[in-house]
Amino acid sequence: MLILFFRSVILYTMVFAILRLTGKRQISDLQPFDLVMTLLLAELASHPASDIATPLLYGAVPILTLFLVQQLLAYLSLKSHKIRSFVCGRPLIVIANGIIQESVLKAARYTMNDLLEQLRIKDIFEIDKVAYAILETNGSLSVLPKGIHQQPSFGDFKLKPPEEQPPHILVLDGTVFREELQRAGKSEEWLKLQLQRMGVKHVKDVFFASLSANGLLHVQDKERAGGKDRRIQTTVTDHG
């Protein structure tokens, strides 16, 4: 039984490492060759994990082979447009200039119900509002609404857009992320000072702290420390 335990741990580690190395896409975003690999990996790992009469190598060799094939296909797809089209398929325009492309839908075995459902997921309830809809190679639908239904941008109104940088997550569950502090150009002393200003005694009491690009520090205490939600505007140029 101990052998079964360790074989399972070895195979799990192997499958996990390979899935991490092949990319961290979600199941819904998988390309066909990624999906094939994911399905096969589970099956290949389960047999030698549960049967101690089967050498571990019977699982390891196919898993390593699949990893190599997948890496090779990913590399070739990156380098060659033709191979990428062959392996991943091509995006299909299912609505062009507001007109549903019936022949394309049939070729893609995509029903009108599928199309309407995907449009509804994108908050479009009237097909009349769509100028172009493209069925992507991973199965998702990209939609370009007609001009009058498109949302205006900050640029259209000549407004100052918000900062384009993602916020820095400085503390999570009481742990300070020093690397993230460095990226934000701040020090731990600066963080402690700001927390003191907000009335937080210990960083261990902080459940979550983030610093946005415009200098807004958002801190939420742990529930046991009161669970208080606090915000403070810091100066962007203050490098702590």
């Binding site: 190395l21 060799v61 390593l64 082979t65 190599l68």
Partner: peptide, 26 residues
């Protein structure tokens, strides 16, 4: 946390290691 450095190198190292292991096993 935002990952600023995708680890393409680790994939290449893993692929080379996998190829070497398979070669030995073959």
């Amino acid at each position: 946390m935002v990952n600023y450095k995708p680890s393409a190198r680790s994939s290449v190292i893993a692929a080379v290691a996998a190829a070497a292991i398979l070669l030995v096993i073959f």
